[in-house]
Amino acid sequence: MKEYTEKIREIAKRLLNDGTVDMVIGFRKGTLPMMNQPHIATCTDSADELMWDSNCGLNLANYVTDRKEKIGIVAKGCDSRNLVTHVIENKIKRDQLYIIGIPCSGMIDHHKITAMFDTDITSVKESGESITISGNDFSKKLIKQDVLCENCAACTHRNPVEYDELVADLVEEQTDVDPYESVTEIESMDAEEKWNYFEDLISPCIRCYACRNACPLCYCPTCFVDESTPQWVGKSQDPIDVRTFHLLRAFHCAGRCTDCGACERVCPMGIKIREFTKKLNKDCLELYGWEAGLSLDERPPLDTFKTDDPDEFIK
């Protein structure tokens, strides 16, 4: 990962120096282990803070929405797909962007690691495929592959789809994974089991909206949860209100979600929010043969009409 960091800094400095971009969006070391922060570097000094490791799971596409400047942005597979989605949705122009592509080998799941230990973790060091977790009185070595985020473990688009420059050679894509395993499992349940499954899933939700804020797709000026005339969804913790929020949030991402996992990553309660969006992704793939953010020239399925669209649901 050190090579990545150095290469990112080198590219960022070059771009800032020759005026190709006004800023470079990337990550810097966070104050807590496994919590890297988004960082906007506007001068070569601050470009030295840029870095890369396996804790850069947030989606940087979130920070380019409606910007007017020329932007250099560090993008792994999912970020680049979200940048494509942004371009398609006219939230940014492609020629404003200089995409620094990161061939990604997956991000580690901090929920999983925190749950493994009883005491606080003070440092997480990474070398190659192993990760050393240490706290005040312990130190443990883990294999990175075992603690990957669920979406990374089943990711089929690790390489950026759109980029101007790469920091390293492309990595091999995974082909033997099924991202929709849990969806298939839920599909086989009956209505009541499904209802109860989701009831359990969202019961810890505290409606902090972190998932919405971390999501690069959620850029509406006024979110439906903040609308008050009329009020579509109650602000309480009533299970129905919580469910309405999750259903509508997920549905707004239909055909746009790239399964970057930012929502799950930021959830303070560790809710598997992707169970909602994954179903919609699977439907989009099965009904329209669509995966979000793979091409700049194709319109998403929910804003086009084709004569061969499936319509069994209409009588």
């Binding site: 599909e187 209505a191 499904k194 209802w195 109860n196 499954y197 469910r243 239909a254």
Partner: peptide, 18 residues
């Protein structure tokens, strides 16, 4: 419709027609 059913609302509660 697919999505609501997926989360446990019975199939017959939402209809579309033309």
């Amino acid at each position: 419709k697919n999505f609501l059913e997926h989360t446990g609302i019975e199939p017959g509660r939402l209809h579309f027609s033309w």
